[in-house]
Amino acid sequence: MKRIGARAHDFGTLPAAELASRLAANGLCCAQLALNKAIAGLNLKPGELNPGLAWQIGEAFRSHGVQIAVLGCYINPVNPDDAARGELLRFFKDHLRFVGDMGGSLVGLETGTPNVDYAIDPETGSEATFQALVRSISELVETAEACGAKVAVEAVTTHTISTPQKMKRLIDEIRSPAMVVIHDPVNLINAENHQDEARYIEEPFQLYGDRIAVIHAKDYTVKDGEYRQVATGLGQMDYSRLCGLIKETKPGISVLLEDSGPDTIETCHAHIAKHWPA
């Protein structure tokens, strides 16, 4: 069973019902929803998300048959400013508390850099930064367990969790079913390692396939040594390999398109359909 969705804000910043209608009209059954990016008029701060607002947004999406597969809350969990990091974690906990009112259970984040501006930092790969991440994720997971929600962690080559091995180590450190993984193969690939693309598609399924809860789908190109992320079907990634693994090991999982708006959605649908096993 193939379930294709998208990042909601790639289709505009709109009232919830209008946005959900637009997603459904483009053949999408699920979405990753970042509230402040996607819902018109919202600029939520810690403590402002509430059950009534969450229910209204969830009801708008439910009425159009669009599941909120991931509630995006892409904070920097290793921000070195203690006060700022505390507020970011508080904001994420708001999402964990109210994601159920929207009909979902997953709240997603990346693992950040030890820089107040979220910039690339030479200390990102250090043991100290990893341990800082463990402390933050542990705190979030404690709230998730109490709420019946899940913290969905996504790796990026320039962030604290940059490889499948580091993700496996984080899973082993946290030791809670309330931490799951968003697998985005393109996030693990760069200009230096793209020749090993198959490894970065497959290895997460081998190391922690039971924790993969969502797939992010986009593409990439490498030309004259320059790496660039593009919409699905406009790059060089082996989608036959990825789609085969999804069908074999994760039937019915939400596959969420990134960098794919109304102008590219037909190409994305066609590319996935072409490579989806019969």
Results as ranks from 00 to 15, higher is better:
88 L>S: 14
192 E>G: 08
263 D>S: 12
236 Q>G: 07
53 L>R: 07
97 R>K: 05
79 N>Q: 03
47 G>V: 11
161 I>M: 03
200 Y>Q: 04
273 A>D: 15
34 A>K: 01
9 H>A: 01
76 N>V: 08
47 G>K: 05
193 N>I: 12
86 G>M: 10
179 M>L: 15
97 R>P: 06
172 D>V: 03
180 V>S: 07
12 G>E: 13
239 Y>G: 09
35 L>Y: 04
66 V>A: 06
173 E>P: 09
167 M>V: 13
258 E>P: 14
120 I>M: 13
13 T>R: 15
244 G>T: 12
185 P>C: 12
185 P>G: 04
209 G>L: 02
184 D>V: 07
12 G>A: 04
4 I>C: 01
239 Y>A: 10
176 S>I: 13
48 E>Q: 14
43 N>H: 05
206 Q>W: 10
10 D>A: 04
209 G>R: 00
83 A>P: 06
261 G>D: 10
59 E>S: 13
123 E>P: 06
261 G>C: 02
171 I>P: 15
3 R>I: 15
26 N>S: 09
152 A>W: 01
267 T>G: 01
158 T>D: 15
166 K>L: 10
224 D>E: 15
199 R>V: 01
11 F>T: 01
272 I>N: 03
161 I>F: 08
85 R>A: 02
52 G>C: 04
224 D>M: 05
64 H>S: 06
212 I>A: 04
131 Q>V: 07
89 L>M: 05
231 A>K: 03
201 I>M: 08
11 F>A: 03
29 C>I: 11
213 A>Y: 12
186 V>H: 08
46 P>G: 14
100 G>F: 05
156 V>F: 15
237 M>R: 00
38 A>K: 12
35 L>R: 11
120 I>C: 06
9 H>K: 12
8 A>W: 13
78 V>C: 10
143 T>G: 05
277 P>K: 05
103 G>D: 10
147 C>D: 06
161 I>Q: 01
119 A>R: 05
222 V>N: 05
170 L>Q: 01
182 I>Y: 14
53 L>H: 01
123 E>Y: 02
75 I>C: 10
141 V>I: 06
24 A>E: 02
251 P>M: 11
232 T>K: 09
210 D>T: 11
114 P>S: 03
97 R>H: 08
127 E>N: 10
64 H>A: 15
44 L>K: 14
76 N>R: 09
49 L>R: 14
92 F>L: 08
85 R>H: 14
2 K>Q: 15
203 E>F: 01
157 T>W: 09
258 E>G: 14
235 G>M: 09
233 G>D: 06
199 R>D: 10
218 K>E: 09
42 L>N: 03
250 K>E: 07
181 V>E: 04
80 P>T: 09
164 P>D: 00
178 A>W: 08
34 A>I: 02
145 E>T: 07
135 R>N: 04
94 D>N: 03
72 G>Y: 00
45 K>N: 03
61 F>G: 00
102 M>S: 13
178 A>D: 01
100 G>K: 15
62 R>E: 08
205 F>V: 02
23 L>T: 08
218 K>I: 00
257 L>N: 00
208 Y>S: 12
239 Y>I: 01
112 G>Q: 04
264 T>V: 01
46 P>V: 11
241 R>W: 05
51 P>F: 04
154 E>F: 11
80 P>R: 13
102 M>T: 12
253 I>M: 12
109 L>Q: 05
5 G>F: 11
106 L>E: 08
34 A>Y: 11
127 E>W: 14
135 R>V: 09
